[in-house]
Structure formats: structure tokens, C-alpha cells
Design a protein around this nucleic acid. Structure first.
Length: 203
DNA sequence: TCTAGGATCGGCT
DNA sequence: GCCGATCCTAGAT
């Protein structure tokens, strides 16, 4: 399990280092896990795309104003949840949006949540899908990812993601943010590198 | 109170 | 590629 210090670093560094890590969900029915392949950095009060831009502090965003290493979960479009991890520290309301990953553990349980017809690579390749796959809801807003008993945690299993494997692009769905919508704060790695047939070049 | 719009997804063309 | 679903949040009145 990643320690608090991991999250207390600059948001872009945390985002970069989250790629390849395991997001693990522990619940009554078992354990599921997703390896993270897509994240976005949201840089707080100076970032027009961020929920806390300009110092906005509301009931929804309260978790972002707290300690690093906690989960910030909110509802978008009235029906999908989005999971973020809070970074930096108190009164620096920044976060990394977890946009997608590859299901690697508890596949049967994930399929129960996502449906039997969904292609394996599509089980968690979007922020809403990932939350559905791991049964993450607003009930988890504010939980501590560093607490040993936490039902949601992020682990390092030793996989190393080489710099050459990381692609940087503008963030998705933030056209309203003007110039900031073009900032290259979305980080992705090719999920195919995790298939058994791929070689490990670049890692 | 009221209202506009959203850090998405899946089905249909 | 387009479009509707669906409801909460934030900001305005």
C-alpha cells in the first residue's frame, strides 16, 4: 500500500507515478484490482478545469481541501461516478483523476458489476466504468487510501513504467476551461503492454 | 428556490 | 459519429 508521502508530492509527479500501480478494492464479496493506465492531473485553484479553481470550496469539493491520500468521489452527468486521489496537502486542493485501467484481479466479481457481454479490455477503460467495476460510489468520498483497513487502496507490485511508455495529451471533456483545456495533463500508457503476448520493452 | 450544464457511457445509425 | 439518459451541483435570483 502506498504511503501518505507518495501523495504529498506535486500532482503531476503523483499522476505519473500512479501509472502501472494497482488500485485494489476490498469488500464483503471479495477482492478486485485494476492496473492504472490513464490518469489526469488537476492543479487546484490555478487550474480553470479543476473543481477548486479560484478557491471554490463547497460541500462537494471539501475532500479536496483536506489531507493528501484521500479519495475524492463525485457524480457526473447524473449517473456516473469519478474517482480522484487528493494530492499535495491541506489547503492545496489538487487531485489526480483516475480515468482508466486494466482489470487484473477478481475478474468474475468485476464482470458481475459490468455485465457478461463487456469486452475484457473495456471493463475499466473509463472513469465511470472503473468506478462501476470496483463498486466505488460517493459513499467512498473522503475515505483514507493510506489507512490499513481501507476498502480502497493503491499498491505497488514492482512494475516499472518507463518514461518512453507514457503519452501526454490534453485532458478530456474540459473544453469549458479555455486555455487550460489544452494543457497536457492527461497521462496514458498503452494497456496492451499488459497482455501476455506483449514484450516488456520500454518497462 | 430555480435553472443550466456537466472531468460519461452505451446504443444506434 | 451522434445523441439521449439522468440528477446533482453551483451559482444566480
Amino acid at each position: 500500500m502506498l504511503a501518505r508521502e507518495f501523495y504529498q508530492r506535486p500532482t503531476e509527479v503523483v499522476a505519473r507515478d500512479l501509472l502501472g500501480k494497482l488500485l485494489v478494492r476490498i469488500y464483503a464479496g471479495g477482492v478486485t484490482a485494476v492496473r492504472l493506465t490513464e490518469v489526469e492531473a488537476y492543479l487546484g485553484v490555478e487550474d480553470p478545469a479543476c473543481h477548486t479553481f479560484g478557491g471554490r470550496r463547497t460541500r462537494r469539493t471539501e475532500t479536496m481541501w483536506g489531507e493528501a491520500g484521500h479519495a475524492y468521489v463525485y457524480l457526473v452527468y447524473g449517473m456516473h461516478h469519478c474517482l480522484n486521489v487528493v494530492t499535495v496537502g491541506p489547503d492545496r486542493p489538487e487531485a489526480v483523476l483516475v480515468r482508466g485501467g486494466v482489470a487484473v484481479g477478481g475478474l468474475d466479481l468485476i464482470r458481475e458489476r459490468r455485465g457478461p457481454k463487456v469486452a475484457e479490455r473495456s471493463l475499466a477503460d473509463g472513469p465511470g466504468k472503473l468506478c462501476q467495476a470496483l463498486e466505488v460510489t460517493r459513499d467512498h468520498d473522503g475515505i483514507d487510501l493510506c489507512e490499513p483497513s481501507s476498502v480502497l487502496r493503491i499498491c505497488d507490485d514492482g512494475l516499472r513504467v518507463g518514461e518512453g511508455a507514457v503519452k501526454r495529451t490534453p485532458r478530456v471533456g474540459v473544453d469549458y476551461a479555455g486555455e487550460a483545456s489544452g494543457w497536457p495533463l492527461r497521462l496514458v500508457i498503452d494497456s496492451r503492454v499488459f497482455s501476455s503476448s506483449a514484450d516488456s520493452t520500454g518497462f
